[in-house]
């Protein structure tokens, strides 16, 4: 029982991370119908930026919660800009080309970030500074809830609430929903479609950066290829929830995180990374539109 509870806590923390990344996949898919394969690598850049910022700003030697907040938000801003830049340079010129061109370009951007990252940041793992000292907040038997776990879950939850507010209650959110329905009709409303697409990339990439910076706190070893597997898993989480669907991405992420930790705990940690692919295969076989996705009948 204790072990189960403990694993659930771990699973939820990882699930929150996957959910944040999955939201970016789902947002970009919503407006561009593109699986942005570079998204997992933006998460890596988020962790790297947080690492460098923590050192440059001196928080690495003088850890504090406020320091972490500053590092987190700055990393989100930088990655938001990176996301907009990727869209501008790599995807926008291909907007009116066959969708496959953009998809292949996304794979290219992903590789550029991974191997460019090895060049710029160095291929060896770095150790993320302990910006917040890990303490156990709550102990019952063998179950420990650390402040880091709680922070990861709370910050993720907060960002999701903010995102929900933006999408459902603000003008730009309304524009995002309109653009995801039709570029052409949106432009006839006076919406600058390019701006809206940029904003989507900014928000999605900022969420991934937040995930990256928080992962640094829990699992301090960071390196340029760290985004590959979480990227794939978050993508599967988005598909599981129904790609293009916001609540679906969150639920998908949590299910992914919990399942993965439970499998690692009760079967073998060797199977940990296989879980994502099993889930993907099952979803595609049983419910290709995902848990919350609408089954659309393609009219021919």
């Amino acid at each position: 029982m204790d072990q189960l509870l403990q694993q659930l806590i771990n699973g939820l923390a990882w699930g929150a991370i996957y959910a944040l990344i999955a939201l970016g996949y789902t947002m970009v898919y919503g407006v561009l119908r593109l699986i942005n394969f570079a998204h997992g690598d933006v998460y890596m850049v988020g962790a790297m930026m947080a690492y460098y910022l923590a050192h440059w700003l001196g928080f690495a030697v003088a850890p504090s919660t406020i320091g972490f907040v500053i590092v987190l938000t700055s990393s989100m801003l930088i990655c938001g800009a990176l996301g907009a830049l990727i869209e501008l340079v790599a995807y926008r010129p291909l907007r009116n080309r066959p969708r496959m061109s953009m998809l292949i370009t996304a794979i290219g951007v992903s590789m550029l970030l991974e191997f460019g990252g090895q060049r710029v940041f160095g291929p060896d793992p770095k150790f993320f500074p302990q910006l917040i000292e890990s303490r156990s907040l709550f102990k019952a038997g063998a179950v420990v809830l650390t402040n880091i776990d709680l922070l990861v879950i709370c910050v993720s939850l907060f960002l999701m609430v903010v995102l929900r507010f933006i999408v459902l209650r603000t003008k730009i959110g309304l524009a995002v929903r309109a653009v995801s329905f039709s570029f052409e009709t949106s432009s006839l409303m006076g919406i600058n479609v390019n701006t809206v697409i940029s904003v989507t990339f900014v928000i999605g990439s900022a969420l991934a950066a937040a995930a990256g910076a928080m992962v640094g706190l829990r699992n301090p070893k960071i390196e340029p290829l760290m985004g590959v597997l979480p990227g794939v898993k978050a993508f599967v989480a988005a598909v599981l929830g129904g790609i293009g669907n916001f609540p679906g991405a969150v639920v998908g992420g949590l299910v992914m995180g919990v399942t993965e930790t439970l499998v690692a705990a009760y079967f073998s940690s060797t199977y940990r990374d296989a879980v994502a692919f099993v889930i993907l295969i099952v979803v595609l076989l049983v419910r290709p539109a995902g848990l919350f996705g609408k089954v659309t009948v393609e009219k021919v």
């Binding site: 929903r177 329905f181 052409e184």
Partner: peptide, 10 residues
């Protein structure tokens, strides 16, 4: 536009 093109999701 032709065919109304209302945002059906809104």
């Amino acid at each position: 536009p032709e065919g109304r093109q209302v945002f059906a999701n809104l």
